[in-house]
Computed example of a mutant assay.
Amino acid sequence: MKIDHVHFYVEDAKVWRDWFVHHLGFQAVAKSISSFHTCTEVVKSGAVCFFLSSPLLPTSPVAKFLLQYPPGVGDVAFAVEDVESAIALAQMHGATILQPIHERQVGTAFIKCGKIAAWGGLTHTLIQRRCPEVGIDDTKKELSLSPCPRVPVSSSITAIDHIVLNVAVGELERAVAWYENILDFQPQQAFKIKTDRSGLHSQVMVSRNALVQLPINEPASSNSQIQEFLDVNRGPGIQHIALRTTNLVSAIAKFRASGLSLLSVPQSYYSQLKQRPGLTLSPLELEAIAQQEILVDWQEYPPLGAQQTAPLLLQIFTQPIFQQPTFFFEFIERRYQAQGFGEGNFRALFEAIESEQIKRGTLQ
């Protein structure tokens, strides 16, 4: 299993196509897959593919979604080896089948897909390609790259690292069981983050082949940022998507130059980093990281016999990209086979978002 694409439901697909092109250096795909009631644009960067849909008529499924939820992720599509088995497993465990399996041809590939209801307004499309080597990026007869309306920054985004789902208080165990039973995910890391003001509980779910990582959060206090998301989103949903890059410092400098708004990190954070055991960054590297306000985490005491260079995790987060404080992006670089999510960074992110909550007046 792997992530095939993520489908955003927005008010104006063309505006958001231009946003991804201008701010993140995505390329716009020329072939339209719109229908009479829905406009759909497609943008790509590396292995990352986003569908952006907006309603043309009130009968559009996107219009119905936007009546209930603010703009955001409506569907996460997974490529699977056997869609019939995947849908049968989902059905056996009580999942709601929204679209039965149907087959269509895209270029030279034959695609079978079905759709299931997930958590809140989220759905999952399950896709099987008869010719695995043919994907949306190389079906050239159907999809080609169009000239972009603005000159894009050169994007170094290569893949989706993980996708984060927020659920209501008391629903974490049920959501974990749902992904275990329906999609055969397995539990991995668990976090409990608590500050003086609020908290959250998180359980990371991973597909059997470890290519899909899905942390699930629930609020641990009534004023938690997770609860604020649930209130504004009017239910559970995707809080953020982490996009992987090979050179985060360079990428963020370009994104900032394009006008992308990112969460602030106080410089005192970097003074504290220097006090932690095991920091392998040179003073020059740390200065460049601090200038871009990037979070850093590593294992302070690696196990005996571990490689000399400790795995290092670099992360940074955008401000919410839509008008309401719901969905945002994370950018991540994993050095030396760094795994997991970095509990230190997780807490730093939580505190940074708390600062934004205080500015909005939703946290005292």
Score class of each variant (00 low, 15 high):
Arg335Lys: 12
Phe191Tyr: 13
Ala95Tyr: 09
Ile157Glu: 00
Gln323Leu: 07
Pro283Ile: 12
Leu98Thr: 10
Gln27Arg: 13
Glu103Gln: 11
Ala86Val: 07
Gln68Gly: 14
His23Cys: 06
Thr123Phe: 04
Phe317Ser: 02
Leu98Trp: 04
Ala253Gly: 05
Thr318Gly: 00
Met92Cys: 11
Pro283Trp: 13
Ala288Gln: 08
Gln357Asp: 01
Ser271Met: 07
Glu142Phe: 13
Gln227Ser: 08
Pro152Gly: 14
Ile87Val: 15
Ser258Arg: 10
Gln337Gly: 03
Lys64Val: 09
Gly342Glu: 06
Gly361Phe: 08
Thr280Asn: 15
Glu287Arg: 05
Ala95Glu: 10
Gly305Arg: 12
Phe50Asp: 03
Cys49Trp: 00
Phe328Thr: 00
Lys194Trp: 09
Lys192Asn: 15
Arg347His: 13
Ile101Arg: 10
Tyr9Trp: 13
Val176His: 09
Leu248His: 07
Ser34Asp: 09
Phe191Pro: 00
Leu263Pro: 03
Val169Met: 14
Phe317Asn: 00
Pro149Gly: 13
Phe20Tyr: 15
Leu349Gln: 11
Pro149Ile: 08
Val249Met: 08
Glu293Arg: 12
Leu67Glu: 15
Phe229Glu: 02
Gly199Tyr: 06
Phe255Trp: 09
Pro320Ile: 01
Val206Cys: 07
Pro187Lys: 09
Thr96Tyr: 04
Trp178Ser: 05
Glu285Asn: 13
Ile252Met: 06
Glu171Asp: 15
Pro71Met: 10
Leu230Lys: 00
Ala253Asn: 01
Gly237His: 02
Val176Tyr: 09
Ala117Asp: 04
Val134Thr: 14
Ile157Gly: 02
Leu143Thr: 04
Val169Asp: 15
Ser54Ala: 13
Glu180Arg: 15
Ile163Trp: 04
Arg234Thr: 13
Pro302Lys: 12
Lys115Ala: 01
Val134Ser: 05
Gln267Thr: 03
His124Ala: 05
Ala47His: 11
Val212Phe: 05
Arg347Pro: 06
Phe328Cys: 02
Phe36Ser: 14
Ile33His: 00
Ala348Tyr: 10
Thr125Trp: 03
Gly74Leu: 07
Gln319Arg: 06
Leu363Asn: 04
Val42Glu: 00
Leu279Ala: 10
Glu354Lys: 01
Val10His: 01
Trp178Thr: 07
His162Phe: 01
Thr40Asp: 10
Gly305Leu: 12
Val48Thr: 13
Gln337Lys: 01
Thr59Ile: 13
Leu248Pro: 05
Val204Ser: 02
Pro132Ser: 09
Thr38Pro: 08
Ile3Ala: 05
Leu313Gln: 02
Ile321Leu: 11
Pro147Ser: 12
Asp12Gln: 05
Tyr69Phe: 12
Phe322Asp: 03
Pro100Leu: 06
Val232Gly: 05
Asp75Gly: 03
